[in-house]
Design a protein around this nucleic acid. Structure first.
Lengths: 335, 335
DNA sequence: GATTATTCTGAAACCGGTTACATAAGGTGA
DNA sequence: TCACCTTATGTAACCGGTTTCAGAATAATC
């Protein structure tokens, strides 16, 4: 059923039908009602492809994230969808599985699909990412990444300070041997700021970082467990505290420690980062760095909307702040 | 940059450019290389809207889920995206926030956007859902729902038996007063089978269900906590075991019990359903009913692909089996 | 070498909408 | 009543591709 059929049934021209649908005020009342009658009866659904081809607006936003099974990403996506749907946009969702090449592939798909904008959570910016940003006139927002070119607005997490703050908290509790379980194998960008925050805190307290206490891996519980094991079995004095780059790693670390007959926090303090919702529910409740991931998605979407409505305006960045949550998995070091 | 520009630059016709892109074997080698040269130089990206308008294939699949912040949904979506991307399809993702009306709204958007197929995880089937299924010729797959009309294939979770099995396990451990924390306020469909499984188990053991031990609510930790509280404070003997319709509720229930000075599983056994990945990591590790949600997404996607390739074939349903995982949050009732 | 079959290429129609423009009808003021 | 201005509608061009069809060029056959 196409518009021409409707036109014929209503005894008007195709153009009139189009007007009734899009600008009814331009059409006389009696024709409007006659056409609307037919529209209702037939249950006509316009082919948006055709419309979008000429209006050059798809109301489609491409979104690339590393994964969606991870709470934090999922939360963020919820924030994005909420705002975008509210504004009449739809989501074309893609997961890069942490491969920068995949991200680029999807950028290309998005471009061909004529999306109105893109929100990307890139694993790693390649040179080709940058040329894409520079060449494409597409409104774009980066999450957790700063565009070196300065032309793309971003939503950033204050991971450096969040981590530094938490590690300083551990140091203030008297801990000196603090392990760092990182996710650099998986996502350099996410890891870097946290790692630097960790090092900055140690340095401020005059503590020399020890390689054996620092690991790199992915987001999996398995890695968290193995990482804790590796650190625990390394030669030298056992750490008295652990900072894990994500809550999931922290939970896995706690599991390992418990299995070693080591209680948390009495023997070892463990802190995470993310504050996933069950962090406060489990036992011991997890000391962690809280971020409002849902809100970060909202911010990203709003930044994009702004960019689409006022392309000439200078790109702004949004920094998502943190809150240190002191809970049950940390305590002062034993004398 | 449109195809005509490429044609002009290469000194050929639009049609030839189109052929070079889609059916190069129909074009002489020298022209192919000449055109490809120009394509490369210009970085030409064809407008898929135009192509899709004529080929009537968008390679777009609409997916509606209640939320994506919940682990199980996110896992499932990952399964879906994996299979679909593998097959060259893209995802148009929408969340219904558990409102059937929203689902229908998105069905409509999908239709207008000319998606090639739909995967839906409906909260509740309205009459209008059914008329949509019946009228629309779109390939469709339902998750966790059976189409009463029998025309739509579905992926189902064996929740009835999974729950029954788990509750019987609790009964076999000697428990008789077993609470049920449900999610019916939130999602009737998901709740119903679990509730019935619970009742079936009780009935097999000749235990009369008690209203005061059964609650209805949503997926939130807050509800899980309040629900456990309500049950715990109800007049009558305290339950010795709890079956929670999801792991998250189970974790929240455990938190409440712990706060009451009641230890799990010594004083009260708690079992969940889902087996989210941290279920085995937390302490006590959670006895639960395992489902492979990622796989359920894979199945849904494959069912849809099959449906799109062989529309005439009779729709089949896939049942996702469960596995009972006996872990640390349950034990035999104290004498 | 003429005829036929085959392979390439381009012109034009088409997908299903929107919109610029032309035209006819109705309303207003002189 | 006529000229002029609005307003409502239809015609046709257009968005950017694909594809049918016809014709030109080349290869194959006798």
């Amino acid at each position: 059923m196409k518009m021409e059929d409707i036109a014929r049934l209503a005894g008007v021209s195709k153009a009139t039908v189009s007007r009734v649908i899009n600008n009814p005020e331009q059409v006389s009342p009696q024709l409007v009602s006659r056409v609307e009658q037919v529209l209702k009866e037939t249950g006509y659904a316009p082919n948006l492809l055709a419309r979008e081809l000429v209006t050059k607006q798809t109301h489609l936003i491409g979104v690339v994230v590393p994964q969606i099974g991870i709470d934090t990403f999922a939360e963020m996506i919820e924030g994005i969808t909420h705002v975008l749907n509210q504004n009449g946009y739809n989501l074309l969702l893609a997961t890069s599985r942490d491969q920068p090449e995949e991200e680029l592939r999807y950028f290309d798909v998005f471009r061909k699909k004529q999306v109105d904008g893109i929100i990307a959570f890139p694993t790693l910016l390649l040179e080709r990412h940058q040329t894409f940003f520079a060449r494409s006139a597409l409104p774009l927002v980066l999450v957790s990444q700063l565009d070196p070119g300065g032309t793309v607005p971003s939503v950033l997490y204050d991971d450096f300070n969040g981590t530094r703050d938490m590690v300083e908290y551990l140091l203030a509790l008297g801990h000196r041997r603090i392990a760092y379980l990182g996710v650099g194998q998986h996502n350099k960008v996410i890891d870097q700021a946290r790692r630097e925050g960790y090092l900055a805190a140690l340095s401020r307290y005059g503590v020399a970082p020890e390689e054996r206490l620092m690991t790199q891996g992915d987001f999996s519980l398995q890695y968290g467990y193995r990482a804790m094991q590796t650190v625990w079995q390394s030669a030298g004095e056992k750490p008295t505290a652990v900072f894990a780059a994500t809550d999931r790693l922290a939970l896995a670390a706690i599991q390992y420690l418990r299995e070693q007959g080591c209680s948390v926090p009495e023997d070892v303090s463990v802190a995470g980062l993310d504050d996933m919702d069950i962090a406060a529910t489990v036992h011991p409740s997890l000391t962690t760095v809280h971020y409002d991931y849902y809100n970060s998605g909202v911010q990203a979407a709003e930044l994009l909307l702004l960019r689409m409505r006022r392309p000439q305006k200078r790109p702004a960045n949004v920094m998502i702040g943190y809150q240190r949550k002191e809970r049950g998995s940390t305590c002062a070091v034993k004398k």
